[in-house]
Write a protein that binds this DNA or RNA. Structure first.
Lengths: 218, 218
DNA sequence: GAAGATTGATTGTTCAATCTTG
DNA sequence: CAAGATTGAACAATCAATCTTC
């Protein structure tokens, strides 16, 4: 099928998307993290706190899959945060291979501060745009992401892979999930709130929390 | 000023943007890289090849700034690619502190294959969308990125910072640059093609190629 | 035995210090 | 002396192997 889409156009789109993503990560989020935690918290650690805040019963393997690192690395990250009193681990009675992680008062406050600062800064950045425009763009991006995920070639592409990709931007109602094929990692780990407004989850078993793609660079 | 933009809306937008960025990096680009180079090339190495392909006279410091790593790391990356015959380094006559890097036949072919595969896959992903819609979104993302860059607080925020953020998606005419405040890293390193269609560069001296933001996570 | 978490060797990164060259 | 590239120690990531618990 011939389409009016040229390589120049897709190149430009991808370029803009990359520049925007970098601006968000390296300037926007970095500034917020700096503001609320100084140099005391890495982004990976922040993600870990978000995961624990949202999900119940997080194992090391879960954390690893969510953070996009290996189990040993996740294990160390958890260890470090526990030592710094930002995470609490209470052994599960039934199975002592797994630990139950929860936030401490300090980390709870930290996340609240982060959200507040983010909302503040985001309001400034987005102030001059129309809600409809942002919503429309948001939806377009979700559709495109779903298209990319579907295009994914071979390897272990079972349909019920878990989505781990919103990181610290969890949405109760995720369009990517609806368009695409992935189950939400956060939602599978919530014991309450099975799937709030609509869209029954279907599968409910967590296994081999495989990553979205290969996140390695080599 | 009260705006109709809510925290929920900005959250959703940022969530979509993150998911899309991840899909592009971890699925789309990873699949292309896998296709054309197997496991033989990391993404950082690919970026390095792109830099050399676009820019003349790349120093180690330039490469470091562009790759977002430190000089020692960049030095090693270059070393490795030279050993694998994907980069050629020919000493500059005037100054033997610096080396002139250039592509080899192998790496040139590799980049061509990458571009071809990317265009192919991108055409599929974007096929069902309207050019106007993509252009409009692209522009919106550039404006937002520029807004974020301007919002950036303090530290060394001299206006004539270099933009290194499009990575492997260099554009001759970069809207982000026009909206924002950053000079294009690629363009400053081209001896020919001073600044193709419009917008004279102004400064032409490269110094202290400071990164866009802090790319570290700690 | 299997599932999951942790250890040990290797690699790649940063930072501070050193070397090189103009 | 200054600018830039490289070295060496410290640290974090990976992978393979081991240990623990059911």
């Amino acid at each position: 099928m011939s389409s009016p889409i040229t390589p120049e156009l897709t190149h430009e789109f991808l370029s803009s998307a990359r520049v925007f993503a970098k601006a968000v990560r390296d300037v926007f989020e970095a500034a917020i993290l700096q503001e609320v935690a100084g140099d005391k918290l890495t982004f990976v650690q922040l993600k870990l706190l978000y995961l624990v805040a949202q999900a119940d019963s997080v194992t090391i393997g879960d954390a690893a899959a969510f953070l996009g690192v290996t189990s040993p690395a996740a294990s160390k990250s958890v260890e470090k945060l526990v030592r710094r009193r930002l995470l609490r681990r209470s052994d599960i009675q039934g199975d002592r291979r797994t630990s139950q992680l929860s936030l401490t008062e300090a980390s709870r406050r930290l996340l609240e501060a982060y959200e507040a600062a983010r909302n503040q800064r985001a309001a400034e950045v987005f102030a001059q745009y129309l809600p409809e425009e942002l919503q429309h763009t948001s939806e377009l991006l979700d559709r495109l992401a779903a298209g990319i995920a579907r295009q994914r070639p071979d390897q272990s592409a079972h349909e019920d892979e878990l989505c781990l990709q919103c990181e610290i931007y969890f949405r109760q109602r995720c369009r990517f999930k609806e368009f695409g094929a992935r189950h939400c990692f956060y939602q599978l780990h919530k014991s309450d709130q099975p799937d709030p407004p609509s869209v029954p989850t279907g599968s409910s078993e967590l296994e081999a929390a495989s990553d979205f793609g290969q996140s390695k660079e080599g």
